[in-house]
Protein backbone atom coordinates (compact mmCIF):
# COMPACT_ATOMS: atom_id res chain seq x y z
CA UNK A 1 0.00 0.00 0.00
CA UNK A 2 1.33 3.37 -0.93
CA UNK A 3 1.75 5.83 1.93
CA UNK A 4 -0.38 8.91 1.40
CA UNK A 5 1.03 12.00 2.98
CA UNK A 6 -1.32 14.63 4.31
CA UNK A 7 -0.75 17.71 6.41
CA UNK A 8 -2.93 16.36 9.21
CA UNK A 9 -0.47 13.55 9.88
CA UNK A 10 2.19 16.06 10.89
CA UNK A 11 0.58 16.32 14.30
CA UNK A 12 1.17 12.64 15.09
CA UNK A 13 4.68 13.10 16.59
CA UNK A 14 3.43 15.98 18.73
CA UNK A 15 0.37 14.01 19.82
CA UNK A 16 2.58 11.08 20.86
CA UNK A 17 4.88 13.48 22.70
CA UNK A 18 1.97 15.07 24.58
CA UNK A 19 0.66 11.66 25.62
CA UNK A 20 4.10 10.55 26.87
CA UNK A 21 5.12 13.72 28.69
CA UNK A 22 1.87 15.42 29.68
CA UNK A 23 -0.96 12.90 29.97
CA UNK A 24 0.88 9.81 31.26
CA UNK A 25 2.83 11.80 33.90
CA UNK A 26 -0.47 13.35 35.01
CA UNK A 27 -2.09 9.92 35.43
CA UNK A 28 0.98 8.68 37.30
CA UNK A 29 0.66 11.61 39.71
CA UNK A 30 -3.00 10.78 40.36
CA UNK A 31 -2.04 7.13 40.88
CA UNK A 32 0.78 7.96 43.31
CA UNK A 33 -1.38 10.46 45.19
CA UNK A 34 -3.87 7.76 46.13
CA UNK A 35 -1.48 4.90 46.87
CA UNK A 36 1.08 4.10 49.55
CA UNK A 37 3.98 1.67 49.49
CA UNK A 38 3.56 -1.54 51.55
CA UNK A 39 6.72 -1.99 53.58
CA UNK A 40 8.00 -5.19 55.12
CA UNK A 41 11.21 -5.01 57.17
CA UNK A 42 12.11 -1.74 55.47
CA UNK A 43 11.74 -3.19 51.98
CA UNK A 44 8.90 -2.20 49.68
CA UNK A 45 6.90 -5.28 48.78
CA UNK A 46 3.93 -3.70 47.04
CA UNK A 47 1.55 -0.80 46.88
CA UNK A 48 -1.88 -0.29 48.29
CA UNK A 49 -4.76 2.09 47.65
CA UNK A 50 -4.80 4.77 50.34
CA UNK A 51 -6.29 8.11 51.35
CA UNK A 52 -3.42 8.80 53.76
CA UNK A 53 -1.83 11.45 51.54
CA UNK A 54 -5.12 13.28 51.14
CA UNK A 55 -5.86 13.16 54.88
CA UNK A 56 -2.31 14.25 55.67
CA UNK A 57 -2.58 17.19 53.27
CA UNK A 58 -5.53 18.63 55.18
CA UNK A 59 -4.51 17.71 58.75
CA UNK A 60 -0.75 18.20 58.83
CA UNK A 61 -0.20 21.65 60.44
CA UNK A 62 2.99 22.37 58.44
CA UNK A 63 1.25 21.63 55.16
CA UNK A 64 -1.80 23.70 56.08
CA UNK A 65 0.43 26.59 57.11
CA UNK A 66 2.41 26.41 53.86
CA UNK A 67 -0.77 26.24 51.80
CA UNK A 68 -2.14 29.28 53.63
CA UNK A 69 1.10 31.18 53.00
CA UNK A 70 1.04 30.17 49.31
CA UNK A 71 -2.47 31.51 48.87
CA UNK A 72 -1.62 34.72 50.73
CA UNK A 73 1.57 35.33 48.74
CA UNK A 74 -0.14 34.38 45.47
CA UNK A 75 -3.04 36.76 46.10
CA UNK A 76 -0.84 39.65 47.24
CA UNK A 77 1.50 39.23 44.27
CA UNK A 78 -1.38 39.05 41.79
CA UNK A 79 -3.12 42.13 43.18
CA UNK A 80 0.07 44.21 43.35
CA UNK A 81 1.12 43.13 39.85
CA UNK A 82 -2.32 44.08 38.54
CA UNK A 83 -2.23 47.47 40.27
CA UNK A 84 1.19 48.28 38.79
CA UNK A 85 0.77 46.61 35.40
CA UNK A 86 -2.63 48.00 34.48
CA UNK A 87 -1.60 51.67 34.52
CA UNK A 88 1.68 50.82 32.78
CA UNK A 89 -0.10 48.88 30.02
CA UNK A 90 -2.77 51.57 29.76
CA UNK A 91 -0.30 54.43 29.40
CA UNK A 92 1.79 52.47 26.89
CA UNK A 93 -1.21 51.42 24.80
CA UNK A 94 -2.59 54.97 24.71
CA UNK A 95 0.64 56.86 24.03
CA UNK A 96 2.14 57.57 20.57
CA UNK A 97 1.89 55.08 17.74
CA UNK A 98 5.45 53.79 17.24
CA UNK A 99 7.06 54.91 20.47
CA UNK A 100 4.99 52.66 22.72
CA UNK A 101 6.42 49.42 21.27
CA UNK A 102 9.94 50.55 22.14
CA UNK A 103 8.80 51.65 25.60
CA UNK A 104 7.13 48.27 26.11
CA UNK A 105 10.41 46.53 25.25
CA UNK A 106 12.07 48.49 28.07
CA UNK A 107 9.76 46.75 30.53
CA UNK A 108 10.34 43.31 29.05
CA UNK A 109 14.12 43.25 28.53
CA UNK A 110 14.96 42.30 32.14
CA UNK A 111 12.71 39.24 31.76
CA UNK A 112 15.24 37.75 29.34
CA UNK A 113 18.02 37.79 31.93
CA UNK A 114 18.20 34.39 33.61
CA UNK A 115 15.57 34.12 36.32
CA UNK A 116 17.84 32.89 39.13
CA UNK A 117 20.41 35.58 38.25
CA UNK A 118 17.67 38.19 38.58
CA UNK A 119 16.48 36.87 41.94
CA UNK A 120 20.10 36.77 43.05
CA UNK A 121 20.55 40.40 41.97
CA UNK A 122 17.52 41.45 43.99
CA UNK A 123 18.83 39.47 46.95
CA UNK A 124 22.15 41.33 46.83
CA UNK A 125 20.31 44.65 46.64
CA UNK A 126 18.08 43.76 49.60
CA UNK A 127 21.00 42.60 51.70
CA UNK A 128 22.77 45.90 50.93
CA UNK A 129 19.73 47.87 52.08
CA UNK A 130 19.75 45.65 55.14
CA UNK A 131 16.25 44.18 55.04
CA UNK A 132 17.20 40.67 53.91
CA UNK A 133 16.17 38.34 56.73
CA UNK A 134 15.77 41.29 59.10
CA UNK A 135 12.53 40.01 60.63
CA UNK A 136 9.48 37.89 59.83
CA UNK A 137 7.76 40.88 58.33
CA UNK A 138 10.68 41.64 56.00
CA UNK A 139 10.93 37.95 55.00
CA UNK A 140 7.35 38.07 53.75
CA UNK A 141 7.79 41.53 52.28
CA UNK A 142 10.91 40.50 50.35
CA UNK A 143 9.25 37.31 49.08
CA UNK A 144 6.27 39.22 47.69
CA UNK A 145 8.59 41.92 46.32
CA UNK A 146 10.61 39.24 44.54
CA UNK A 147 7.50 37.62 43.09
CA UNK A 148 6.23 40.99 41.81
CA UNK A 149 9.67 41.76 40.40
CA UNK A 150 9.70 38.45 38.52
CA UNK A 151 6.15 38.17 37.29
CA UNK A 152 5.32 41.80 36.47
CA UNK A 153 6.08 41.36 32.72
CA UNK A 154 3.67 38.38 32.59
CA UNK A 155 0.94 40.80 33.66
CA UNK A 156 1.98 43.81 31.56
CA UNK A 157 2.14 41.93 28.23
CA UNK A 158 -1.36 40.40 28.03
CA UNK A 159 -2.89 43.64 29.38
CA UNK A 160 -1.02 45.68 26.80
CA UNK A 161 -2.14 43.44 23.91
CA UNK A 162 -5.77 43.60 25.03
CA UNK A 163 -5.78 47.35 25.68
CA UNK A 164 -4.15 48.02 22.31
CA UNK A 165 -6.94 46.15 20.54
CA UNK A 166 -9.72 48.24 22.13
CA UNK A 167 -11.18 50.58 19.54
CA UNK A 168 -10.85 54.12 20.87
CA UNK A 169 -14.15 55.12 19.23
CA UNK A 170 -16.06 53.19 21.94
CA UNK A 171 -14.55 55.46 24.57
CA UNK A 172 -15.23 58.53 22.44
CA UNK A 173 -18.83 57.44 21.91
CA UNK A 174 -19.27 57.08 25.67
CA UNK A 175 -17.86 60.56 26.19
CA UNK A 176 -20.10 62.02 23.45
CA UNK A 177 -23.06 60.49 25.23
CA UNK A 178 -22.14 62.38 28.35
CA UNK A 179 -19.91 60.05 30.34
CA UNK A 180 -17.02 61.65 32.22
CA UNK A 181 -13.54 60.24 31.62
CA UNK A 182 -13.53 58.06 34.77
CA UNK A 183 -17.02 56.74 34.02
CA UNK A 184 -16.07 55.98 30.41
CA UNK A 185 -13.04 54.08 31.69
CA UNK A 186 -15.05 52.20 34.30
CA UNK A 187 -17.94 51.27 32.00
CA UNK A 188 -16.15 50.80 28.66
CA UNK A 189 -12.40 50.28 28.80
CA UNK A 190 -12.26 48.14 31.94
CA UNK A 191 -14.90 45.59 30.88
CA UNK A 192 -13.34 45.36 27.40
CA UNK A 193 -9.93 44.64 28.92
CA UNK A 194 -11.33 41.79 31.03
CA UNK A 195 -9.75 39.01 28.87
CA UNK A 196 -6.31 40.57 29.37
CA UNK A 197 -6.84 40.77 33.13
CA UNK A 198 -7.88 37.11 33.21
CA UNK A 199 -4.82 35.91 31.30
CA UNK A 200 -2.56 38.13 33.36
CA UNK A 201 -3.95 36.64 36.57
CA UNK A 202 -3.59 33.10 35.17
CA UNK A 203 0.05 33.77 34.28
CA UNK A 204 0.89 35.26 37.70
CA UNK A 205 -1.21 33.56 40.38
CA UNK A 206 -0.13 29.90 40.11
CA UNK A 207 3.57 30.66 39.54
CA UNK A 208 3.69 33.03 42.50
CA UNK A 209 1.96 30.42 44.68
CA UNK A 210 4.56 27.81 43.86
CA UNK A 211 7.86 29.50 42.97
CA UNK A 212 9.98 28.38 45.90
CA UNK A 213 13.22 29.73 44.42
CA UNK A 214 12.05 33.26 45.23
CA UNK A 215 10.69 32.38 48.66
CA UNK A 216 13.80 30.40 49.63
CA UNK A 217 16.34 32.98 48.47
CA UNK A 218 14.50 36.15 49.52
CA UNK A 219 12.47 34.86 52.48
CA UNK A 220 15.69 33.81 54.20
CA UNK A 221 14.46 30.19 54.18
CA UNK A 222 11.70 31.11 56.62
CA UNK A 223 8.81 31.51 54.19
CA UNK A 224 7.81 27.96 53.31
CA UNK A 225 5.23 27.69 50.55
CA UNK A 226 3.63 24.70 48.88
CA UNK A 227 6.47 24.68 46.33
CA UNK A 228 9.04 24.26 49.10
CA UNK A 229 7.11 21.24 50.42
CA UNK A 230 7.09 19.67 46.97
CA UNK A 231 10.82 20.30 46.72
CA UNK A 232 11.38 18.53 50.04
CA UNK A 233 9.35 15.51 49.00
CA UNK A 234 11.27 15.45 45.71
CA UNK A 235 14.64 15.61 47.48
CA UNK A 236 13.57 12.82 49.87
CA UNK A 237 11.93 10.77 47.09
CA UNK A 238 8.58 10.87 48.92
CA UNK A 239 6.73 10.50 45.66
CA UNK A 240 3.29 9.82 47.16
CA UNK A 241 3.11 12.92 49.35
CA UNK A 242 4.62 15.07 46.59
CA UNK A 243 2.14 13.75 44.03
CA UNK A 244 -0.80 14.62 46.27
CA UNK A 245 0.36 18.25 46.56
CA UNK A 246 0.97 18.41 42.80
CA UNK A 247 -2.51 16.97 42.25
CA UNK A 248 -3.96 19.73 44.42
CA UNK A 249 -2.22 22.35 42.26
CA UNK A 250 -3.45 20.58 39.14
CA UNK A 251 -7.03 20.77 40.46
CA UNK A 252 -6.58 24.48 41.28
CA UNK A 253 -5.35 25.02 37.70
CA UNK A 254 -8.30 23.20 36.11
CA UNK A 255 -10.89 24.86 38.35
CA UNK A 256 -9.54 28.36 37.75
CA UNK A 257 -9.38 27.75 33.99
CA UNK A 258 -12.97 26.53 34.08
CA UNK A 259 -14.13 29.44 36.27
CA UNK A 260 -12.57 32.05 34.04
CA UNK A 261 -14.17 30.47 30.99
CA UNK A 262 -11.13 29.10 29.22
CA UNK A 263 -7.95 30.81 28.35
CA UNK A 264 -6.78 33.14 25.62
CA UNK A 265 -4.28 31.13 23.63
CA UNK A 266 -2.54 34.05 21.99
CA UNK A 267 -2.03 35.79 25.32
CA UNK A 268 -0.01 32.89 26.67
CA UNK A 269 2.64 33.32 24.00
CA UNK A 270 2.51 37.08 24.34
CA UNK A 271 2.86 37.03 28.11
CA UNK A 272 6.28 35.45 27.64
CA UNK A 273 7.21 38.06 25.07
CA UNK A 274 6.65 35.74 22.12
CA UNK A 275 5.35 38.34 19.70
CA UNK A 276 8.03 40.93 20.39
CA UNK A 277 10.69 39.32 18.24
Amino acid sequence: MKFHFSRKQLCIPYAVFLVCFVLIPMFIIVFYAFTAPVMENGVQVGITFSFDNLVDLFTNPTKLLNMGRSILIGLLTTVICLLIAYPVAYILARSGIRRNAVLLLLFIVPMWVNFVLRVNALKELLSWIGILGASDFWNYFNTVLGMVYDFLPFMILPLYTTLLKIDNSYVEAAKDLGASAPVAFWKVTLPLSYPGIVSGITMVFLPSMTNYVVSTLLGNGKVGIIGSLIEQSFLNSQWNAGSMMALLLLVVMFVSTWLTGGFQNEDAASSRGGNLW
Binding site: L206, S243, F263
Partner: peptide, 13 residues
Protein backbone atom coordinates in the same frame (compact mmCIF):
# COMPACT_ATOMS: atom_id res chain seq x y z
CA UNK B 1 -0.96 27.27 32.34
CA UNK B 2 0.08 24.56 34.76
CA UNK B 3 2.38 25.45 37.64
CA UNK B 4 5.84 24.52 36.35
CA UNK B 5 6.56 22.52 39.48
CA UNK B 6 3.67 20.17 38.65
CA UNK B 7 5.06 19.47 35.18
CA UNK B 8 8.51 18.99 36.71
CA UNK B 9 7.39 16.68 39.50
CA UNK B 10 5.12 14.62 37.26
CA UNK B 11 7.98 13.90 34.87
CA UNK B 12 10.33 13.15 37.77
CA UNK B 13 7.78 10.72 39.26
Amino acid sequence: INAEIVTALSIAV
